[in-house]
Design a protein around this nucleic acid. Structure first.
Lengths: 348, 348
DNA sequence: TCAAAAGTTGCAATCGATTGCAATTTATTT
DNA sequence: AAATAAATTGCAATCGATTGCAACTTTTGA
């Protein structure tokens, strides 16, 4: 790599100062139009490239937002990222995506790395196994603009973007009950996470409202990956459930495959209900009933809120923490509808 | 945000020079062990954070690799990223992920942005509509370490990591023929891209080897998204095909849904063959035959090669361009197997 | 005891762009 | 024509860490 051209090189050739070049390249109106054009012209000719690093150091801001995801390989994650991008791109923010592979250790490393990189703000969805959240305190100490979304800290005062998980859990369970299900198995994730805890509470409330006694043998916690789900479902079948409410479309799909292999009819013998409205929920057979999870909107809101915070911070105003709740929608499809035909919705 | 602690703050408090602090923090053996410990101790106490930006500026390297993907919302993309990470993490490289949403325009912006950010090297998979590839010349001019993977430039001398797309197309078609298919429809993507072109050539060659005359009415190019695939499949059905070879599992799944809605039996009436071995290929009914696409391995190889290049560049040695071909594997499942039962493979 | 070697530390320049303030030139007004 | 305003440009410091070179201190060896 031959050395990159700098503003000093341009300045020398044009017989002006580096200041002028810098201002010209930034289209500062203080610089004469002709000078500006000459600078741009030469910059183009010589293949000058703005050195973001030097500029960031001087300006003490990076115009970059760090995003910490627990995983990236889901339709939900990519929707969220798309939503974030929709907001950040016109505002000229870059995003730096990290993922913690569901471990607290990597989450910790990611937080550290993002601070070192001096991002202007951070958007986080917690890792599954992030019980000890001490690694976030450096962010609070710094008053770093920070928005949690989806999987959020339960305790701390902070800004959050979430869906109504309780309602989602309630709606799903309520629907299954309406289809005549009485032994509704609930295979779910780590209850330390708000998302699974709240859905579980919604599940319980729906049972209660219909005077169905809660049976703890019908609830099982697992990692919701293929292996663990397979095991959990297989074990659960001994309890003779007449429905599975598994708040993850992927895990629900795994469940359905197991049922199919055992020639169990879905939804007549056992109904299945997922969560997320993932791409695949509309492609598998039977199509999966689920709760639509507006990832794009969540990403949008999170980014919007964060950028507001960043702007306030620059003006040294202080920030009010608040919680934004995004509405969800129940999507009824073949896997759970036993009675009268209802219209199903296409995947959006 | 109160101001961040710098090495100068630490230096002052400890009554040593910033040089010593810097060296201590980097565990430079030239610094006395006791001094080093004192520095680390104070750094921890005061919540010092290394300023990557300043360090990058001085060191003229960012230890960051830029990745330009055409899309990120696929199992393949996340596999590739995981493969890249596996290599970069132990080498202490960060990755900066950008995606071009299949447009040349965004690809161009991404290239520019990554140069401005002074990444040490770039890994690229081309956008679907990236015909004019002039925006890559600044990279060649700079002799920027650069590895293309999957969707690669056909012309330029550069390092590439690809699969044997020809063989994949050949194997798929050959298998369909072995199942008695004679009118094999091929719905595929932009032929300017090596991946679709080579698979098409494989398709043609297989037909030829079995003395089946090539029929251009059975080939249709589209964007392979849901809407375009739906249209293409619907139109294609007028040609009365007895098989679909659609080199994208997602698009093949869309196709299967259409066939199912028309009560067309798969694979007896029409066999379907995909490409990628995506997560969903194993979850849909019937399970989809496909070509396994070792994304993880491709990511790994691309990153490995790139880091080699980066290291050579630092020593001012020059780099030999070469092409790495990763083997693929045919995965036979229910959607295409008409005759004798064959063992199916689980998704890896 | 003194010179050479090894161990520690610091000076000062450097990376490249930005920006407050001042200086200079040009245009406008009276 | 002089005074004032407006437009244009530059000086020099700054952001925070790194590093070649030199200096200083301590240890080692004869």
């Amino acid at each position: 790599m031959q050395k990159e051209i700098t503003i000093y090189d341009l300045a020398e050739r044009l017989g002006v100062s580096a200041t002028t070049v810098s201002r010209a390249l930034n289209d500062n109106p203080r610089i004469n139009k002709k000078t500006r054009e000459k600078v741009h012209q030469l910059a183009k000719e010589l293949g000058y490239r703005h050195n973001t690093i030097a500029a960031n150091l001087r300006k003490q801001q990076t115009k970059t937002i760090g995003v910490i995801l627990h995983e990236v390989n889901s339709y939900f994650a990519t929707s969220v990222l798309a939503g974030i991008e929709k907001v950040t791109t016109p505002e000229n923010f870059d995003i730096l995506i990290t993922h913690s592979a569901e471990t607290a250790e990597r989450e910790k490393a990611n937080v550290k790395n993002l601070i070192n990189k001096r991002v202007d703000g951070i958007i986080v969805s917690l890792a599954m196994h992030s019980h000890d959240t001490a690694h976030f305190t450096p962010l609070f100490e710094r008053e770093m603009p920070l928005v949690f979304f989806d999987r959020v800290l339960q305790s701390a005062d902070c800004t959050k973007v979430v869906i109504d998980n309780f309602q989602g859990g309630y709606d799903a369970t309520n629907h299954l009950i309406s289809q005549g299900c009485k032994r509704i198995a609930h295979i779910t994730g780590d209850m330390d996470l708000n998302v699974y805890m709240d859905r579980f509470k919604g599940y319980q409330k729906a049972l209660k409202d219909h005077k169905i006694k809660f049976n703890k043998d019908l609830v099982k916690v697992c990692g919701l990956n293929k292996a663990e789900t397979t095991q959990a479902v297989t074990e659960m079948l001994e309890q003779k459930p007449d429905a599975f409410f598994i708040p993850s479309d992927f895990a629900a799909a795994v469940c359905m495959e197991i049922l199919r292999n055992k020639d169990i009819n879905i939804p007549q013998d056992i109904a299945v209900f997922g969560f997320n409205n993932d791409m695949l929920s509309d492609l598998i057979t039977p199509k999966l009933s689920t709760i639509d999870y507006p990832g794009f909107l969540m990403g949008e809101m999170a980014a919007k809120t964060l950028i507001e915070q960043i702007k306030l911070r620059r003006k040294n105003k202080n920030v009010k923490d608040h919680t934004i709740v995004i509405p969800t929608e129940i999507i009824l499809r073949e896997s759970s509808v036993r009675k009268k035909a209802k219209t199903t919705r296409p995947h959006k």
